[in-house]
Design a protein around this nucleic acid. Structure first.
Lengths: 211, 211
DNA sequence: GCGCACAGACCAACTAGTCGGTTTGCTATC
DNA sequence: GATAGCAAACCGACTAGTTGGTCTGTGCGC
């Protein structure tokens, strides 16, 4: 624990390089050179370059899926659940931006056996979002006309897209971004009655009753 | 015009393959084999594999940028402009889905001189969206609290993300998807007054005054 | 008979992965 | 607490296979 293990150093270096140059734009030789390791050290820790790619994917999706499940269990109303899930999703960019970039860019290059595992978790995540949206409509918090699949995929899309523009040292903090997303998303989902609910409208940037 | 030229056949084949296996997952040999051409034929039409990648990027971004500019000129109010731009954006998936997949997945592998040209157009597109959002806030059609950049990037993100899930033979038509997007986006942007405007609320799935 | 469009054998460079060997750290023994 | 023994961690030269790109042609329209 005193020193960073080689495996971690390799992952860290690989992430930085993959994020910038893409999986195929970086050779194993480059990775090991950049972190002062060797070919042998690399293949002692990973079965293949593919396994490293899988590992990066898995760390991120496992983490974010856990966070969503935690948020789902912790809160009891659809609106609160959705906001908590989105907030946790956005927050991940703070720690895992390079992972997410690789996850969104290089998934196509995962070997079938790895892709299968990752896709199963990806699918689970999607289903949680869909579930919350359905519950929200059921509970009359979200508009009945909202198409669950489109709305769910839109949410996933707009947050995931952050990997193209989010800069940790940008003008807005990660919490501000999460709040802005929640405001936009809730405005598009909530029914008029729900917006008038004090408990719910607290997630909005401005309370509709204020004017 | 009587027969499909080799260049077009190469592009078409390359697109199908790139979409499925990624740019680096497909060799030049594979492309030419699959479309009954030869190495010579390929390099007669393209300076390099990179140029083919650039060409695919350019066709799509040029097309979609034109469509956005046309929509902007054709309509005069922010809401109409935004809806028309989004509609045109979504419609592109009907024709250019493989282009868009490659565009979103493989941009990192463009050689610097090509990347520069593409990014300039990409930036232009972003600015049109931002502009319309600013105009909408100015005209009091869109809520003043809406953060222009976040909202703009969200819109671009959610539509672009379609490349991950859109299937031409899915349950919803491209027009239905466009309508659903517009409904979600307008609900998140419009002021309460604007929603009561007959002319504007016609873009919503259900008119708020109906209840 | 000239040049454009294309064919296909060939090449040089690159890269993931291997393999015999060395170092390091831990444990049991005296 | 020195030492021997041993396994895991790590090194780096080497290899086999792959791939973008070249080059010498060849057929064909005008």
């Amino acid at each position: 624990m005193v020193e960073k293990q080689l495996k971690d150093r390799i992952i860290e270096t690989a992430l930085t390089l993959f994020e910038k140059y893409g999986y195929h734009g970086v050779t194993v030789d480059r990775i090991v050179a950049e972190c002062g390791a060797s070919k042998g050290g690399f293949y002692h820790n990973f079965k293949s370059k593919d396994e490293l790619l899988y590992h990066i994917h898995d760390v991120f999706i496992t983490y974010v899926l856990n966070k969503a499940q935690e948020a789902y269990v912790k809160y009891k109303t659809p609106t609160k659940r959705l906001c908590a899930i989105i907030q946790s999703f956005v927050r991940v960019f703070h720690i895992y931006k390079p992972h997410i970039t690789v996850f969104n860019q290089e998934a196509a290059y995962l070997k079938p056996e790895y892709a299968e595992k990752i896709n199963a978790k990806r699918e689970q995540y999607k289903q949680i979002i869909f579930q919350v949206l359905r519950e929200g409509i059921e509970a009359k918090q979200f508009r009945a006309e909202v198409p669950v699949e489109i709305a769910g995929l839109s949410i996933i899309g707009m947050v995931n897209w952050m990997y193209k523009w989010y800069k940790p040292d940008g003008p807005m903090s990660i919490e501000q971004i999460a709040t802005a997303f929640n405001d936009l998303i809730l405005h598009s989902l909530l029914t008029e009655e729900a917006k008038r609910d004090e408990d719910i409208s607290s997630f909005l940037l401005s309370h509709v009753g204020d004017e």
